[in-house]
Each structure stands twice: as C-alpha cells, then as structure tokens.
Design a protein around this nucleic acid. Sequence first.
RNA 1: GGCGGCAUAGCCAAGUGGUAAGGCAGAGGUCUGCAAAACCUCCAUCCCCAGUUCGAAUCUGGGUGCCGCCUCCA
Length: 478
Amino acid sequence: MAIMVYNTMTRKKEEFIPREPGKAGIYFCGITPYDFAHIGNARPPVVWDVIRRFLRARGYQVFMVQNITDVDDKIIRRAQQEGRPPLELAADYARIYMEDLAALGVEEADVHPKVSEHIPEIIQMVAGLLEKGHAYTVDGDVYFAVESFPDYGKLSGRSLDEMLAGARVEVDERKKHPMDFALWKAAKPGEPAWESPWGQGRPGWHIECSAMSLKYLGPGFDFHGGGTDLIFPHHENELAQSEAYTGSKPSVRYWLHSGFITTGGDKMSKSLGNIITIRELFKDFPPQVVRFWLLGTHYRNPLNIGRQELEAAERGLERLETAWNNWRHLLTQEAGGGAENGAGRIRELAAESRERFIAAMEDDFNTAAALGVLYELVREVNKWSLAPGFTLNAAAKEGLQEAVAVLEEGGEILGLRFGKAQAAAAGLGDEEIEAMLARREEARREKNFRLADEIREKLKAHGVIIEDTPQGPRWRRG
RNA sequence: GGCGGCAUAGCCAAGUGGUAAGGCAGAGGUCUGCAAAACCUCCAUCCCCAGUUCGAAUCUGGGUGCCGCCUCCA
C-alpha cells in the first residue's frame, strides 16, 4: 500500500511519491533557543522521529535535518538582559533542548545546522534574490518583494489583498509592499553582526531555513514540517524565498504541520504565560510516558495536556509493557508436550496485526489507530496464553514469538522500547531471582505463606514483581 | 474584520457512505493462600436543524460552540 500524507499545500491526503525512489529527505523547524523548551516544542520532534522511524522501517533511506535558529531578536534581547553573549546563551539552551529530546527517545537528526554557522550561504541567497529582482535594499536592510512572486500566499491559502485587509501591523513606509519581509537586517549597536555586501548586519527570520534546507537537501525535497503556527508567515515566506531563488518549484513536495498542545483548551505559549516546560513535566511523568501520551492522538489534532490524560497514558503504556514482559517470560520457559492449543490462530492474528499496524501508519502516520491494533493483539494473546487449558508447547512458543515480534516492531517504530529501561535498571541477576523464586515456591508448597510473602516483598524492593499463574509463578522487572 | 480547523461515552481517542476500534476510569463476575496480572460481562447512535441517499458520525446547506492563523510563537 501507498503511504498517504496530508499536505498543507493542497489540504488533502496525497500519496507519498519521493523525489528519489527509496529515499526521503526531511527538514523540520527546530527551535529558537532562548529559554527552556516547553512541551509544545516537543511535539514536532517526536512526530518527525516517528515518521522517520516508520519510513525507515518501510525501506526508505531517510535523511533528516532539524535546524537551530540561534540568531534571533528574542535571543538577543534575552542575552542583553542577562549580560551574556547571545550565541553562548543560544548554545546553552539548544543543548538543554537536545537533552530533553534525547530523554523522549528522539534520535538526533542527521544534521542540525545553526544559523550562525551558515552566514555565507545566507548572504549568497540574499544576493541571488537581489540579482533576480525579488528583493531590494533600504538603509542596509534587504527586503523580499512579495509582489515579485505571484505564488505568494499559496501555502497558507490567502491572497495579498486578504492579508492587507486583516493586517494588524503598522506599515513600515520604507517597504514597497506592507507584506514585504526582511531577508537581512542592518546591525544595531550591541547586536551580533556579520559583514555583508549591504554592510554589517544579520539574517532575517525566514531566510535561514531556505538557505540551510537547500544546502543539505537541495531543491524539491520531500517533507517539511513544524507546528501549524509556522504556516504563516514563516513557511509561506520560506517557500517564496526558495522558489524565487532557485526558479524551480515545488521547493518542498509535502508540507506537514502538527497541531498544538493546549492547556485548558488554550494554545500553550509564552505570551499567554501558560507554558509547561519539558523538564517540569518529567518531574511528574517519565519521558516514555510523555512520548506515549503524545502519540495517543493523531499529530494534526490539537492535544490538551492534563494530569488525567497523562495518567491514563501511563496506565495504558504499562499494559503494553506488562504484556511484553509476560510473553517474553513465557518464552524463557521449557516447552512441554500437549495438544494443539490455538497457536495457529495466534500466528495468523500476529500477521494480521502487523499488517493493520502498518496500514494505520501509512494513513498519514495515524499512531493512535496503530496503538489500537497493538492493544487488540495484547488482549487476544493474553486471553489465549492465560486460559486454564493453555499448554506451552513448541507451537505455542512460535505463536508467542510472533506476537512478541509484532509488539517489538511496533514499539521500535513508535520509539517505545518495551522493557529495555527496566532491564537496565534492575540490580538483581536472573539467576539470583530464579533462586529466590524457587525458595518461595518451596515455602508455598509447605504453606509457609509468611516466608513466601517475605520473599515476594524482598524481590519487589529490588524492582522485581512476582505474579502467580496457573502455570506457576512468573516475574518481571517493573 | 479576513482565512482556516475542530465538535464522537465520565475522560482520552480512531473511524470520511454500509450500520460506532482502542485506552483510562466505573460496576459486576472469574481466577487466586494472599497479592498481582489477566480474562469475561455491562457502559455512546456520533453538537443542533434541514437535505441528498436504499443507507450518513461520515456528503450538502444553515445554525450553535470552541480553537488557531492574520504580531514573536512548535
């Protein structure tokens, strides 16, 4: 089946046809690091991490770029307040952001270019736009002339007339058209500045993404994304710059935008003062849970954050993890004889689940639906493997193995590595645990429940949970 | 004011023409020395109205409500 993606440009789901067969190039807007990142800043990276993992699992060779805008008004202002160099401040917060993402299980992009390290590329692009008549200079500033680009507005679906009608910005008289935007800003005293053909200055807000995406991915790359608030003006301007500069279109084949995280129904933003930083959230919920919660809703839908929602996610994830643990534990047991017990059906179910999981992901990366498939598999396999008449024969182990594989493959694509974290954390070795378990079984046979419970408690203190089943006790780290 | 989106059970959330996935919570039950885990059963006709259709949560029109963008913003 084909991978279908919702393209902001056409406002429709389209079949993904890569620029080059078997390859996928992705660029998405990272952050402007001037403070601790909030949870809203974590959604696009997690979404793109999953898209990347999925494309890879489908056989694509993926190259992903995430930029860091480290030259910016907000950074400069903040740095001045704190009396430190802007680039240093930006580097600090960028580092913290990357740490937050790593905790969320986001793999690093192949490149995360910084504006400050791409000034020559930016200057070259601005110069090119001037040459082609898409830009003009005023007092050391360089502006992009929106009227020189007839397609302006095609991404956000608005015309210049409409924008003017609703404009709430005061008009800069020096600009030829009110919607013209800065490509290059003349330096003000005390600001970071670089030498350019137009004097000392720094890049405008949008040009860096055009220059850097072109450098690392070339024209007409596959995916570009970010939060929906970037559609206008940022991505609209970026598109105009890129296509005006290269003279080729589209500059991007598919534009994907993720929805906002809201608090109490309102967008989370610094200006509303309702932000929750990623770090704050980690104090109450493990990063895995936060990631799982993010994936419980389709990426384009808004997502409201709340204690109840996170707690539900925590329990839900636990259910999957417990199943994974229990099944794997069964696989470590000796297979016995016994008659056919429905293992064939389980193998079929596993194969079907794998297909349905992929189908859900192919449908515009529907992680919520994909998780539903996993839950259904869990219920069926649990029912089967815990039924009173269940015998663990060779066929059963094969079926179980298939089911475990589906869970693990799904987990890998979603970036939820079942069990790994716990396994690393537990201090007791398997042999030790097994030995204690054997002693407990002996105690239970002798009806010495006090000792049995004591051992169970002791293991629990070491993070090992004992559960008795009709087939004998099983344990898991959790 | 302009443009766009959304509205599914107590909460979260899939589902874009064929008779409502899944998770969390809740109630009852099974299993169990206890515990845990798990399983079973129960729990919605999809904001409202009018249409199209044999058939609509899904399409059309109108209404109501909420949200976003138009200004820095993931």
